[in-house]
């Protein structure tokens, strides 16, 4: 059974049709990349899957582990193992990053019938994982994303992913705004977090991150439809020729 099965998905934002019949199936252990020009609907698909208010499916269906995903609240989707790494993570004054992650982590544990982790034990977990994603531990004591650099914001998203251990990680442009070194760090980290048990849906505009995180399938999204699916070579073609020939 597919972990995620999207069938003929149509969706609108503010009354405007963005997705016009997306079909996509992802199994555990796979990495899929969605590439496309600006405005093709990549982020809309990511937000829609995570349940962002204002993003409405008008037709089609999405099954996540066999459950009808579209009827669930964003927090329930997260508890079922869905994770969205934001392209532009939100700054939250007054809420510390470690407290924020702990609140999410404990609600997932509660959902699984496991006891909450006390702050002391959680501190050890976050320390270990912060080291793994290359984020200085002192950053976890700061307010969520406040005064974080572009790279630190991306690493903070990966830190959250590493602790939540989702079944499906939707990574919305985890490579945007990164220099070469930071891109390599982020990509290596994604590779490390990907196992046979989970899946990654990587949304990107450029091919370069796919040199590190090698996808099983690459989908080209243009004007709300997947117009082409292939293996990693498809990404190279796009890099060489651009999206023009698919439009």
């Amino acid at each position: 059974m597919s972990l995620l099965h999207i069938d003929n998905l149509h969706a609108s934002v503010d009354g405007k049709n963005i997705l016009k019949g997306v079909n996509l199936s992802i199994r555990r252990g796979e990495v899929h990349a969605i590439m496309g020009p600006n405005g093709s609907g990549k982020s809309t698909l990511a937000y829609l899957l995570a349940g962002k208010p204002g993003y409405k499916a008008t037709q089609g269906s999405v099954l996540f582990e066999g459950h009808d995903l579209l009827t669930l609240s964003p927090e329930k989707r997260a508890r079922m193992g869905m994770f969205l790494s934001f392209q532009h993570p939100v700054e939250i004054p007054g809420v510390r990053l470690d407290q924020f992650i702990r609140a999410g982590f404990n609600s997932l544990r509660q959902h699984r019938g496991e006891p909450e982790l006390d702050p002391l034990k959680f501190d050890r977990v976050i320390k270990k994982n912060a080291g793994m994603v290359g984020l200085h531990q002192s950053m976890t004591k700061r307010f969520v994303n406040m005064d974080f650099s572009g790279g630190e914001k991306k690493k903070s998203e990966l830190l959250q992913m590493s602790i939540m251990e989702p079944l499906l990680s939707i990574l919305d442009e985890p490579d945007s705004g990164l220099d070469v070194d930071a891109l390599r760090d982020v990509a290596n980290c994604i590779k490390q977090l990907h196992t046979f048990e989970n899946a990654v849906l990587l949304v990107t505009h450029y091919q370069r991150i796919l040199n590190y995180v090698v996808p099983d399938q690459v989908h080209i999204l243009v004007d709300g439809r997947i117009v082409r699916t292939g293996n990693k070579d498809l990404a190279h073609d796009v890099e060489a020729d651009g999206y023009d020939k698919y439009e």
């Binding site: 995570a50 609240s73 964003p74 927090e75 997260a78 994770f83 939250i92 999410g104 609600s107 969520v144």
Partner: peptide, 8 residues
């Protein structure tokens, strides 16, 4: 939404 998306 950011908080909700983490299961809170």
């Amino acid at each position: 939404f950011y908080l909700l998306s983490r299961g809170i």
